[in-house]
Amino acid sequence: MSHSAPALRPYLPEDTPVLAAIFAASIMDLTGEDYSEAQQEAWASAAADEDAFGKKFAGQLTLIATLEGEPVGFASLRGTDHIDMLYVHPSAAGQGAGRALCDALERIAGARGAKKLTVDASDTALEFFRKRGYVAQQRNTVTVGDEWLANTTMQKTLNGVAVTGGHA
């Protein structure tokens, strides 16, 4: 592969418009097998208010993944132990940005004393997190606008002890 490895940097307020675009493109282009168009549109609309979207990033530990200096993905940690968002632009999917972001959040959470990390994974992201050692804990349904979207709360133990399925 000729792609360079993604670099990571902290979120800056001026990143908000490009992160909103990455968020919407990721949802609209990558989740079509798991969610209806109406569900995708409702989900992506969370970025329509860029001020509110930017405040969310500023209130969490948010990292940006870049390839050749351009933002291609982002992830945020809410509190010390919950991955709130992890999105990669469709053009960069499969190039390591999601992996690099998740690796960094896992290291940061561990360094902050977290024993486990949780994420509410979309159906599209389930396999990504499963391959990283996250174990499904429960199914959730969230309302976004007039639409219902399903996701799965997953958990990974960070202190090197594996979490086994079904034993939460």
Score class of each variant (00 low, 15 high):
residue 165 G to E: 14
residue 156 K to V: 03
residue 148 W to H: 13
residue 156 K to T: 00
residue 12 L to D: 10
residue 102 C to Y: 14
residue 81 D to V: 02
residue 42 A to T: 05
residue 35 Y to E: 02
residue 67 L to T: 07
residue 115 K to I: 03
residue 2 S to M: 09
residue 87 Y to S: 00
residue 119 V to Q: 00
residue 54 G to R: 06
residue 120 D to E: 13
residue 90 P to S: 08
residue 51 D to Y: 04
residue 29 D to I: 00
residue 165 G to A: 14
residue 149 L to W: 02
residue 77 L to G: 05
residue 133 G to R: 06
residue 157 T to I: 10
residue 139 R to K: 15
residue 43 W to H: 04
residue 111 A to H: 13
residue 88 V to Y: 01
residue 139 R to G: 13
residue 129 F to K: 05
residue 44 A to I: 01
residue 80 T to I: 13
residue 13 P to G: 09
residue 146 D to Y: 09
residue 154 M to H: 06
residue 54 G to Y: 05
residue 55 K to F: 09
residue 10 P to F: 14
residue 78 R to Q: 14
residue 131 K to I: 01
residue 111 A to R: 15
residue 62 T to S: 10
residue 42 A to N: 10
residue 19 L to T: 03
residue 120 D to G: 06
residue 55 K to Y: 06
residue 145 G to P: 02
residue 12 L to I: 04
residue 90 P to I: 00
residue 62 T to A: 08
residue 60 Q to A: 12
residue 109 A to W: 08
residue 129 F to S: 05
residue 120 D to F: 01
residue 107 R to S: 14
residue 56 K to A: 15
residue 80 T to D: 15
residue 110 G to R: 08
residue 19 L to W: 05
residue 25 A to S: 14
residue 102 C to F: 14
residue 24 A to F: 01
residue 83 I to L: 13
residue 104 A to Y: 03
residue 68 E to D: 15
residue 57 F to Q: 06
residue 62 T to M: 01
residue 137 Q to E: 15
residue 155 Q to L: 15
residue 5 A to Y: 07
residue 106 E to H: 06
residue 44 A to G: 05
residue 107 R to G: 08
residue 133 G to D: 12
residue 40 Q to T: 01
residue 91 S to M: 11
residue 111 A to I: 00
residue 80 T to G: 10
residue 4 S to N: 11
residue 162 A to I: 02
residue 23 F to N: 05
residue 63 L to Q: 10
residue 75 A to D: 00
residue 109 A to H: 09
residue 132 R to E: 08
residue 138 Q to T: 12
residue 118 T to R: 11
residue 32 G to N: 06
residue 142 V to D: 06
residue 39 Q to C: 00
residue 15 D to L: 06
residue 164 T to W: 09
residue 151 N to L: 04
residue 123 D to P: 00
residue 104 A to C: 10
residue 28 M to N: 11
residue 135 V to W: 05
residue 131 K to W: 06
residue 19 L to C: 12
residue 71 P to E: 11
residue 26 S to T: 02
residue 2 S to F: 04
residue 49 D to I: 07
residue 34 D to L: 00
residue 92 A to W: 08
residue 102 C to L: 13
residue 61 L to R: 15
residue 71 P to N: 12
residue 114 A to K: 06
residue 91 S to W: 06
residue 63 L to I: 02
residue 152 T to V: 15
residue 85 M to F: 05
residue 150 A to K: 14
residue 10 P to E: 15
residue 101 L to W: 07
residue 71 P to F: 13
residue 76 S to K: 03
residue 63 L to S: 02
residue 156 K to G: 04
residue 104 A to T: 11
residue 109 A to L: 08
residue 52 A to Y: 01
residue 154 M to Q: 03
residue 31 T to R: 00
residue 134 Y to I: 01
residue 144 V to T: 04
residue 98 G to E: 02
residue 148 W to F: 12
residue 80 T to L: 13
residue 134 Y to W: 07
residue 45 S to L: 07
residue 51 D to Q: 14
residue 56 K to Q: 13
residue 25 A to G: 03
residue 17 P to H: 12
residue 40 Q to N: 12
residue 85 M to E: 04
residue 61 L to W: 02
residue 142 V to R: 11
residue 39 Q to S: 05
residue 129 F to C: 05
residue 123 D to G: 11
residue 143 T to R: 15
residue 63 L to A: 11
residue 16 T to G: 01
residue 153 T to C: 11
residue 165 G to Y: 05
residue 111 A to N: 14
residue 14 E to G: 12
residue 53 F to A: 03
residue 76 S to C: 13
residue 147 E to H: 08
residue 27 I to W: 00
residue 115 K to W: 07
residue 159 N to M: 09
